[in-house]
Design a protein around this nucleic acid. Structure first.
Length: 334
DNA sequence: GCATCCCGCCACCAC
DNA sequence: GTGGTGGCGGGATGC
């Protein structure tokens, strides 16, 4: 039984002869003609009235996780085409989601059209491994222009990009704000070698393309509860993202703060660090925690630390923005 | 006008 | 040649 309320049963199948009231054999060409005629008998569906946001990768991933929860028991097989049909999307979109989830070791490609879904069972240990890998790649130093950028991946760039994007959060102190421009500046290969090959226009296209991909990745990460978007106020025009994943939940698994944080948010966020883990609870549960917006910043979609006055939060964001600008302008391209 | 990101073209690869 | 997969960027949409 499908969990999707919109799909209650498999549509009845009809043979062509049933639809056309014909009992005699028809040639392939005639078949095509018949099908065209049959199709013309049905009214043209109205243009989609679905809001753009309702088709976002984040919403789609939410729906996907409803079918295949992160906290489910055991391993299940996922058929991409049938899942795409159940979610009412193109299969291409499923690849976007599953590639990122595969990069998080939530799923494994078994054979064509089939993935094994492990959910979040391996996520905690994988995040620890990612953090170590990020440290080996010296991403924190690279973010500050004090180390070379990691070499460009050769394969599965969406997955690798997703892993490296997440590493940026993992190697930084808790509550570090990272925006996409910063992430791209570290994750895109702008070494002298590649710069000499690419024209400025090509570099710009490459940059924009990577930003697009990071938007996709960020939306999936938001859906699985690894990061949150902090945006929508007048101070920060561009969104920044904050890691809210499993590491901050358990005292024993807290990340060790590295010196020289990018944004000094940790001071007022102590309370939030102690809030319970929601990473496997899905987006809806996290929404419940701030279900009724009361402050102006909450109404704008911000997730302010509890008991933090909104004007104080704006000040924090202002400092964060200044820091981001400082970092961006100070980054030395190696 | 710009940020966001959906959509689908098409290259690549395995069979 | 065919079909599955996924890189990539055009351009629609919302603010």
């Amino acid at each position: 039984m499908y969990e999707d309320d919109n799909i209650t049963s498999t549509p009845k199948r009809y043979a062509l002869t049933e639809v056309t009231n014909s009992t005699s054999y028809v040639s392939p060409t005639a078949n095509l003609k018949l099908l065209t005629n049959v199709a013309l008998q049905y009214p043209t569906p109205p243009p989609s009235t679905v809001h753009r946001k309702e088709k976002s990768l984040q919403i789609l991933c939410d729906k996907f996780l409803n079918l295949y929860p992160l906290h489910g028991n055991g391993t299940v097989e996922i058929q991409l085409d049938s899942t795409a049909a159940r979610l009412g999307v193109e299969k291409r979109r499923m690849y976007d989601i599953i590639n990122i989830l595969e990069a998080m070791q939530c799923a494994v490609h078994k054979r064509k059209n089939t993935y094994l879904w492990h959910g979040g069972a391996r996520l905690n240990s994988f995040l620890k491994m990612l953090k170590r890998q990020g440290e080996n790649l010296k991403l924190s130093e690279a973010l500050r222009g004090r180390a070379p950028k990691p070499p460009a991946p050769k394969h599965k760039t969406l997955g690798v990009l997703a892993q490296r994007f997440l590493m940026l959060f993992l190697v930084e102190p808790p509550n570090t704000l990272i925006n996409l421009e910063m992430a791209v500046s570290v994750l895109i290969d702008t070494s002298n070698k590649s710069k000499s090959v690419l024209s400025p226009e090509q570099q710009d296209r490459q940059h924009k393309s990577k930003v697009r991909r990071l938007y996709d990745i960020a939306n999936v990460f938001i859906s699985i509860g690894l990061i949150e978007k902090v945006s929508g106020n007048l101070i920060l025009k561009k969104p920044v993202f904050k890691y809210v994943g499993p590491f901050k939940m358990k005292e024993t698994e807290k990340v060790v703060c590295t010196p020289s944080p990018i944004t000094p948010l940790s001071i007022l966020d102590t309370h939030q660090q102690m809030t319970p883990c929601h990473v496997f609870a899905g987006k809806s549960k996290r929404k419940l925690e701030f279900a009724t917006p009361t402050t102006s910043t909450e109404k704008l979609g911000l997730t302010t630390p509890p008991h933090t006055p909104s004007h104080k939060w704006d000040e924090i964001l202002l400092v964060a923005d200044m820091e981001l600008n400082r970092i961006n302008s100070g980054v030395v391209i190696i």
